[in-house]
Design a protein around this nucleic acid. Structure first.
Lengths: 210, 210
DNA sequence: AAAAAGTTAACATGTTTATGTGGTTGATTA
DNA sequence: TAATCAACCACATAAACATGTTAACTTTTT
């Protein structure tokens, strides 16, 4: 039996969702509220498995409610409900520890699946929301223009440099002579267009070589 | 009618998926291949709407195939198929422009939905995969844990170290004696719990001090 | 098969760092 | 007011690093 709390300001939708969920085998809505004004106390009192949280509510809204809950409870699953797949809200919700982000137009059967998935550790999200997430993900990640053509061995050496190994330690770690380490490093400097260990390490991070 | 190409090395699964998809109203598998060796030519020849791409294939695997397609075609929708929800592969696939990432155990009916969603611009992913994505998302966005209590002056020195300045250059840049630079750096090492320039630089990046 | 690139290694020379010990000054805090 | 801390400076020594040259051998590419 999955126990839920519901936060939704629209009375019709609140009633409808409660009826739908509580009327389904294995689901029970413990209580439903029209805003998050006392969300912390309510969550503590009812100790639900999953919370359905509308984003747009008068008073304390869903994002703020999410934050408040996460300050005291990191384990309850929270599914955000919204009418839009709004970029900004999605980002906010994810950063604040929401477990999923689904649209209100989600068909009832699917909604119940999503709740189950959230309860078992999944992060259900509608495809349109996932699109936003993926866009953000790839935009904030990498551009990594140059390749630098480091050979395998050179990458290994650079990796160890980054980890703070001295030439001597690298030599012993890689079973080669210290002079060979020097050779590799010289080559690395040429390829990265740097001339010191620190610069190489910095570049390795910046350009995500390691 | 959604036109698909299928890449999957397992003959049974390949046949099964082809039968399933082509046997469904509104879907058509144009062709199915057991590896990505000629993926670019095939995609150009068939011009599909959606591509189902297995990750693990002999020869050119799915991730490499994805990359090759994206080099010449940014619009075709590509859904990655895998048996696991493997962290590393998910990351790779997303970075390389996959439109969705679904598990092979996905029930047939749901698979068809996913294909439709991808075709209309969504990014379907199973809840378990989404969990990985969200974890990565919030981990790369986190605030630095420790503060390390670096003084203003120490931060400046560290900043210059990261940029590859030698002690001498730092001294002249900051209008202080080289021995003072040493003092600062010693203090920095203590505070960061490191004992070499490279480690300090690496830590500066990792913990977003600079 | 020839050319190019990668890996290994040695030798030499000068520079830079890491580390220790010592100190002065001025501002903040207990 | 005494103590603490940040910022400053100096001298000394051993270790680590940067740079140059040379060269044998292997693998990959052309």
């Amino acid at each position: 039996m999955i126990k839920l709390l519901l936060y939704e300001d629209n009375p019709q939708l609140r009633e409808g969702l409660t009826m739908l969920i509580s009327g389904s085998e294995g689901f029970e809505v413990l209580s439903a509220f029209k805003n998050c004004d006392n969300v912390v106390q309510e969550v503590e009192a009812f100790n639900p498995d999953v919370i359905l949280m509308d984003i747009d509510m008068p008073g304390v809204n869903g994002l703020e409610g999410l934050k408040r809950i996460r300050e005291v409870n990191g384990s309850v699953k929270i599914l955000m409900l919204t009418v839009f797949d709004d970029n900004k809200n999605v980002f906010q919700a994810i950063s604040n520890g929401a477990n999923g982000y689904i649209l209100k137009k989600t068909p009832p059967a699917r909604l119940l699946e999503y709740i189950s998935e959230a309860q078992t550790g999944g992060a259900p999200m509608t495809a349109s929301v996932a699109t936003q997430v993926l866009k953000m993900f790839s935009s904030m990640n990498n551009e990594k223009g140059e390749d630098y053509n480091l050979s395998e061995r050179e990458k290994q050496v650079l990796q160890l440099l980054v980890e703070g190994y001295s030439y001597k330690m690298i030599a012993s770690e890689m079973f080669i002579a210290i002079d060979t380490v020097r050779s590799h490093i010289k080559k690395i400097y040429e390829k990265l267009h740097v001339n010191s260990k620190s610069e190489a390490v910095a570049k390795a991070f910046k350009d995500k070589i390691v």
